Simulated assay, not measured.
Amino acid sequence: MCHFAVYEQCDAAECLKMILHQISPQASELLRGQLRDTTKCSKGHIINAQTNPFRTLPLSLKDTPDTTCSVEKVIQRTFWTKALIGNNKLHCNKCQQKTKATTECELVDSPQILILHLKRFDFDYNTRSHFKSHRCVEVPCELQLKNKTYKLYGMVNHMGSIRGGHYTATVLSEDNTWYECDDAYVSKVEEQPFATSRTFSSKTVYLLMYKALQGCHYSRYDQGGANDLNLLSLNDNHGTTYSEESSLKKAANTKSCSGDHKVSCDEKIKTTSSSAKKMITEHKVELINCLSADHSYILQHAHAKQIITDRQYQNIKEKSPSTPQETVTDLIDHVILKTGPESWTAFLEVLKLPDVLSTYPRLKEIINEMLRSNSGCNVWHLKQGDHM
């Protein structure tokens, strides 16, 4: 797992991801939602279907024609059905050929606390370079998503360029007043957001934190869980802003599970994550040799699935000199050493995608060996339809 230090240049989204790995399982459940990705051929056969958890919802700002875009429209575009035609056709096992297909993402379960990650830092495949989007984004005070109404209570802003900058946080207090947190300085925002409109326009907002107006019952959590929620709110009941260092220490030292629930919860997480990590580690050499046949393809998939962050993707891709084997080695090392349990299992899920299996013919053999050597492991398995 990555480690951050105060005063070092770090990405706020990466730091948030690390904090979320440290909080208690009960508090983590408040941020947990589920997305279902479904790919179907033109005849309606399901090529691939996956349901995966998320704790931050990434929103791309690319491919938006307008200078200004709204959060609501970006969310709608995220859940549009997309057509896969031409060179993007996929192989359908039932049709026994490559065919036109559609892919769609569906929000299955919405969390009580919704964190939106506006992907201002992205990669342009045409110019093969990274860039920062300075697009103006209209942020709503309230957001309707699935069966919940959310109210904005925190924003993280980035001022600067792709090569460096400065982060601040804008936080809503209990008296419904917005405050700006800039390093050690906290001050009331002069022009209060949403004072005259339900939306607020910003060219710097990077992370948005919403909480559900109904159904969010914090009382069922003990003191430890409540402390973790204070951490996510960026301030305690007295309005004192935590430094990044003290926040990380507080999250790491919080104990919130108790009794039998703590044992069952911890053991389940430990078993699942250690099994996934073991499968990757034990077959690391075989995976490197296999995936090196097209190192850019697997790297792009890992990036698209949020297994590695934008910064990690950039570091691996721009590392020079670098052979295909070194690139894949760096990718697997990032997955194993510098990310958490969700990324380990997500990486295994990527390996079983139909287009990935067809790109790397030897991958099926490695997968079967994984399954034989880890028999009885419930972390990951190929569906019957994935075998050829």
Rank of each mutant, 00 (worst) to 15 (best):
M1H: 11
V6S: 11
V6P: 03
C10Q: 11
D11C: 07
A13V: 06
C15E: 09
L16H: 13
Q22A: 15
S28P: 08
I47Y: 02
P53L: 02
F54V: 11
F54I: 12
T56V: 13
T56E: 04
S60K: 12
L61N: 12
T67P: 05
T67F: 15
S70K: 13
I75Q: 10
T81C: 04
K82H: 08
K82N: 09
A83I: 05
L84S: 04
I85R: 09
I85K: 06
L90E: 09
N93C: 07
K94R: 11
C95P: 00
C95A: 06
T99R: 05
A101V: 01
Q112C: 06
I113S: 02
L114V: 07
L116E: 03
L118E: 05
L118H: 04
K119W: 01
R120K: 11
Y125F: 05
R128K: 13
K132I: 12
S133Q: 10
S133L: 08
H134E: 15
H134W: 10
R135E: 14
C136H: 08
V139Q: 09
E142D: 09
Y153A: 03
N157L: 14
G160I: 01
G165D: 00
G165L: 01
H166T: 02
H166W: 01
H166D: 00
A169V: 05
V171T: 07
L172E: 03
W178V: 01
E180L: 13
C181A: 10
D183N: 12
Y185E: 04
V186R: 13
E190R: 05
P193H: 03
F194P: 02
A195R: 07
S201A: 14
S202A: 09
S202W: 00
K203R: 14
L207A: 08
M209Y: 12
Y210E: 05
K211T: 05
A212V: 06
L213G: 09
G215Y: 04
G215C: 04
Q223E: 14
G224W: 00
A226Y: 15
A226M: 15
N227S: 15
L229T: 07
L229I: 14
N230V: 12
L232V: 12
N235F: 06
G239L: 07
T240M: 15
T241V: 15
T241E: 11
T241Y: 14
Y242M: 15
Y242D: 15
E244Q: 15
A251S: 13
A252D: 15
T254D: 03
T254I: 07
K255G: 13
S256Q: 13
D266T: 11
I269E: 15
S274Y: 05
A276I: 04
T281N: 09
T281P: 06
E282A: 07
V285G: 06
V285S: 10
N289G: 07
L299H: 03
L299N: 05
Q300T: 02
H301T: 03
A302F: 00
I308Q: 00
I308K: 01
N315D: 14
S322L: 03
T323D: 12
Q325E: 14
T327H: 02
H334P: 02
E342Y: 01
E342H: 03
T345K: 07
A346R: 06
V350F: 01
L351T: 01
K352F: 02
D355T: 09
V356F: 00
V356E: 02
T359F: 07
I367D: 01
M370A: 04
S373G: 12
V379R: 10
G385W: 10
H387L: 13
